[in-house]
Amino acid sequence: MNPFSEDVLIPLFLSLKVAGWATVVAGFSGLSAAYLVAKVRFPGRELADAVLTLPMVMPPTVLGYYLLVLIGRRGVIGGWLDRELGISLVFTWQGAVVAAAVVSFPLIYKAARAAFEGVESQYEQAARVLGKSEWNVFFRVTLPLAWRGILAGMMLAFARALGEFGATLMVAGSLPGRTQTLSIAVYEAVQAGNDQVANFLVIVTSVVCVFILVASGYLLKPRYATA
């Protein structure tokens, strides 16, 4: 079959787009949450950690259901969006982004928290004594020292978002060309007995995932080991 046929390219690019945006969304929220939990002491910190990690262990369909309750047209957030802004996320690629972002959030959050906690506070204190503001301390010391762990987490999150199936299907459905991502297209192809398309989609997905895992494994190797 033609590897550049629309059957392959459209879901591939849609998946990359959804996974990319999901990584951006989960990246910002995951980094903020991780920094807060890692560096600020507040009551209920461990409970917050558990809640933020929940999407990693819950079945994606359960998450999808929660999301529908929240952002569906009659949901708490979805209802408001629909009334005030006329926006509906259900059955759109943006809805798929929300689903993928929620599912991949814990991967970034966990990696970033470990990375932030791995930065010895002495370095931050040294920067403060050397006249740096808290913003400067974060961007010139904390983030550069935690960066590799965070990047590895983001790559895993991207891979996870790329393979997202359950929550995406529940929130965004499977509209060819609009919300039908790679993993959903595989399912549809198999269901339709279209083995050639299924084979090719599976290979493309596998290659992308292997590449991401190799790269993140390389990034996770310690670099600043003290002699």
């Binding site: 040294a126 004594v129 010391v141």
Partner: peptide, 10 residues
Amino acid sequence: YLFQDYALFP
């Protein structure tokens, strides 16, 4: 301030 193990930025 001189830290005990110097805290040089790695």
